[in-house]
Design a protein around this nucleic acid. Structure first.
Lengths: 198, 198
DNA sequence: TCTTCCTTACTAATTGATCAGTAAGGAAGA
DNA sequence: TCTTCCTTACTGATCAATTAGTAAGGAAGA
């Protein structure tokens, strides 16, 4: 309120507020006023730091993509076994530790925004492509042939997104079922790549 | 313009306009004015038929869900082989024949809206649950055990949604790859259920 | 003093919604 | 057949509220 020289913190606070407001009320009801209230700053501060509302939204998306990306990379580095790397990446995707529960609701908003904003579309595309690329690498590492690995990676990524959406939005499956589906797929892939090795 | 007594057509035109406006500009930029322009009626007409903007949005969502649902049911009825039924349902989901290309972009908007509207949330949940239920039935029909069928159905549904999203938004895979991924999964399930039969 | 960070105070435009009014047509009685 | 009456299906004008964005200035540290 009175402390100064914390511009970076203020910026971050505005971004956090943008994400939480978006998650709760949807992008349709996202206003500079609602953001400024949550961040406890004036609406003018938003324009001071981000110029336009559109730019703020884009930068908020960049922030979460980066966060999850970092989480996934960190989870990968801990593991040497390729399947544990995949599992770690997926877990980071699902939990996103430092993100609040609500922030998880950002993904569909991201996809929507990608539909009418080129920058956001690229952001989403690059993130997805990297995930597939990582999975492909891991599966090759596990002994799969390049082509099979690529297709399996695409399948894996689609599955992760689909299961994520099911958990967050559609919600027809029981808690254990989701986990079991994923475990089975991983087990099958492991079996498949072992067969290749022989 | 001047013709009256075509309320049903006008209603439908407003819904179509809502969907196309939503697909093009996103739900964030959806206004009664933009809808009324596309439908070539006054904004007052929108309120006359749908009372509130929110109610119009909900009814538009109901319309597409029903449309796709009908398409899927029609596709299922044509087939006797369980795997062909699954394939038909998925194809209907991907193509949505009588819908324009743009309308396909509605899904993420639906998921977003489900996040802050209970009615929409139920709509999405029921649609997803029915799809899983249908797939489970088909897989049982093919010879799978109930439990396996249920898990495979959840996997299948997640895969369909994930691949759809990849095609529409993320766009990292080539045209053939998507098809091949799905074909492989179906082939594997067929093999799996054949093994059970023996 | 200068720069950084942010507020108060504002505006012009747009928003969803409401209003009174009306043209078209069907139903019913004479 | 003609008149009267009522309902349906809208329109154009207007509403208060809200919107994103701006201009000016102040407080505080360097």
């Amino acid at each position: 309120m009175k402390n100064k020289r914390i511009a970076n913190d203020t910026c971050q606070e505005i971004i956090n507020s943008t994400l939480s407001a978006m998650a709760e009320d949807g992008i349709a009801n996202l206003t500079t006023k609602s953001i400024s209230k949550r961040a406890d700053v004036s609406t003018a501060a938003i324009h001071y730091f981000f110029e336009t509302k559109d730019n703020l939204i884009y930068n908020s998306f960049v922030f979460i993509i980066k966060s999850i990306r970092l989480d996934m990379l960190a989870a990968r580095k801990e593991q040497t076994d390729p399947f544990m790397r995949i599992r770690g990446a997926v877990e980071a995707h699902f939990s996103a530790t430092h993100m609040s529960e609500q922030a998880a609701y950002i993904w569909p908003q991201l996809w929507v925004h990608a539909g009418c904003d080129v920058r956001t579309a690229r952001l989403v595309r690059v993130f997805g492509a990297r995930m597939v690329s990582n999975f492909t690498y891991d599966l090759c590492d596990a002994g799969m042939e390049r082509r099979d690995a690529r297709l399996a990676a695409i399948e894996l990524r689609a599955l992760v997104v689909g299961l994520w959406l099911e958990k967050q939005v559609t919600k027809y499956a029981a808690l254990g079922e989701r986990r079991e589906v994923f475990d089975r797929v991983l087990a099958r892939l492991a079996e498949q790549s072992n067969k290749n090795k022989k």
